[in-house]
């Protein structure tokens, strides 16, 4: 399924990641794509959805922060290379 945008969040640890995923799924219409826990304890989450839904998800996590969010980004119209890397992983 081709997503219009990706929401990328990076938090510390898997427990915080699950909480952030839950927050994002409840507040906006995004789908969970991938969770990478290999990078030094940081967990990078990638959620797929429309641009407005992805932006709403990122804002939801940043507004009521459960834990420190190291980095958050919204990529609209991701390129095929990024789709392969994210959804292939």
């Amino acid at each position: 399924m081709r997503y219009g945008a990706y929401a990328i969040i990076e938090v510390l640890g898997s427990a915080n990641a699950v909480i952030c995923i839950d927050q994002m799924l409840k507040t906006s219409d995004v789908h969970f794509l991938s969770k990478n826990t290999k990078c030094g304890g940081h967990t990078t989450l990638v959620m797929g959805g429309e641009v407005s839904a992805a932006q709403a998800a990122v804002d939801a996590v940043k507004d009521n922060q459960v834990c420190e969010v190291f980095m958050s980004a919204v990529i609209s119209a991701p390129s095929d290379e990024l789709r392969r890397i994210v959804e292939g992983k």
């Binding site: 990076e10 990078c39 940081h42 980095m71 980004a73 990529i75 390129s79 290379e81």
Partner: peptide, 19 residues
């Protein structure tokens, strides 16, 4: 950070014809 790598990777792939 890995997230920054995803953002940079996407910008790179949109700029030029790379794999």
């Amino acid at each position: 950070s890995l997230g920054a790598c995803y953002v940079a990777l996407d910008a790179a792939a949109k700029t030029a014809n790379i794999s």
